[in-house]
């Protein structure tokens, strides 16, 4: 009978006592306390001095009164671009709906009275609860009909339905100003649901 394979020897338990050898100054502690106090007191007086001179001492942006500058390429809330007559530039080609990785765009196409335009969206919903803000819809659009340049970042809602933006709401949105900040308040939740 072959004996059972020898089990590996049990690992040696090593009692390692890790003690970082402290510098005598650190062991005395009081000197290090003073070093620490110098750092914190330095911050205190520097910030108080800035405050006295009317400058900003803190790194905080006091939202919502005080907004951070936004990058011009930032992808914010979508909007549908309008033609001169106020109708959507969108021709319901379904490119954005197809490319959307989150499947958050829902379009129903209708026949446009102008035969040159052929189609227009009778419904254009974006579910922001699903949207990942990748910007593919903007890239895919052949008509430059959808943009993410409103600068609006605050579009919370109390329900999932409240995050579904309909065509009318998206059409009414305006692009951000030159400073990248929104030129209009985010639409109210009830309007978004189309309950007007």
């Amino acid at each position: 009978m072959a004996s059972a394979p020898a089990s590996p020897p049990p690992p040696k338990v090593l009692l390692v006592r890790r003690e970082v050898a402290a510098h005598p100054r650190q062991r005395f502690y009081l000197a290090e306390v003073l070093v620490g106090l110098r750092v914190t007191a330095g911050h205190f007086f520097r910030n108080m001095g800035r405050w006295m001179r009317g400058q900003k001492g803190a790194v905080t942006y006091q939202w919502p009164e005080d907004r951070r500058p936004l990058a011009s390429r930032l992808r914010s809330l979508h909007r549908l671009v309008r033609r001169d007559d106020g109708s959507p530039r969108c021709v319901a080609c379904m490119m954005c709906e197809t490319v959307c990785p989150a499947h958050c765009i829902y379009i129903v196409a209708g026949e446009h009275p102008n035969p040159d335009v052929e189609k227009y969206p009778t419904r254009f919903d974006i579910d922001l609860g699903k949207c990942v803000f990748c910007g593919f819809c903007v890239e895919a659009c052949p008509e430059d009909a959808i943009r993410m340049d409103t600068g609006i970042l605050e579009f919370s809602a109390f329900s999932r339905e409240g995050l579904v933006y309909s065509k009318d709401v998206l059409l009414a949105l305006e692009p951000a100003g030159a400073d990248g900040l929104p030129t209009m308040a985010p639409p109210a939740a009830l309007v978004r649901r189309g309950f007007e």
Binding site: T40, H43, F44, N47, M48, G57, A58, V59, T60, Q62
Partner: peptide
Amino acid sequence: KQSAVMQDRVGAN
């Protein structure tokens, strides 16, 4: 407030 100023924050306001 003092902790906030020491840590480059604004503090409760």
